[in-house]
Amino acid sequence: MKAPIAWLFIGAFLLVSAIFLVAPTAMLAVQAVIGDDGLTLEYVQTLGSYRYVKAFEHSLYLSVLSATVGVIAGALIAFAMLKPGAPRWLRSVVTSFAAVAANFAGVPLAFAFISTVGTLGLLTSMLKHIGVDLYAMGFSLFSIPGLTLVYSYFQIPLMVIIIIPAFEAMQPAWREAAENLGATGGQYWRMVGLPVLAPSLLSGWILLFGSAFSAYATAYALTSGNISLVTTEISAVLSGNVSSEPQVGAALSVGMIVVMVLVLAASQMLARRASRWTVKQ
């Protein structure tokens, strides 16, 4: 062996990954189908119960909504800040802020929004002062739209960071060529701009979907049981707050992994179609 120490490093890494990452994941799959009397579909079937169907619905709805909002708003912000007419300082301000905000999530983020638009929040009371009662108008921070608002705070910056390179790779000459050939701005975006951006927008959407779908801390601190999401349901099972067997938690977890794999696979298929004009491997 040329470098036994090299294999030691590789082996150690693979071993730790196998024990603490791959095995627990496999364990979930096993646990979900094995009960006291051997193989059973009992736990998988509980996923069909009203409570858990709702949880998956909420999680999916929230993830799709916040990923879509994030992609659109993030792309628009990146587009505006990268326009040639935009001042130079703007760019560094936006990118550095995006790097911070994209990583500002979880409990602190939840409390920032509670302090702002919670029932006692400053904005809520300021608006009430001038006669606008947010909560009477049907808004609630502790609802899916409310959660979407909070998630946008990290989703949009995340998208800005992801999409900047794609915008930068677009040649100004494409725009000029299109204009020169008689195309309007709208025609340019429909026929050239968006198709060229499509693969990057799609992969950005997937990343945002995943980050919202698996988010737990923000939701936990905000909803504490008001809205059930898959992540908060799993944690309820784990902490014994509901009288479910741990196998149900495993089944829910497997359900999440299946959703993630399906979304990833679907997006790869779409991405292959959308990017058939790029360099083939």
Binding site: F20, L21, A23, P24, T25, A26, M27, L28, Q31, G210, F213, S214, Y216, T231, I234, S235, V237, L238, P246, G249, A250, L252, S253, V254, M256, I257, M260, V261, L264
Partner: peptide, 16 residues
Amino acid sequence: FVVPAIALVAGLSALI
């Protein structure tokens, strides 16, 4: 990325 943190913690506490 595919296995959400909450799922991993479920698997970990079941196995270890």
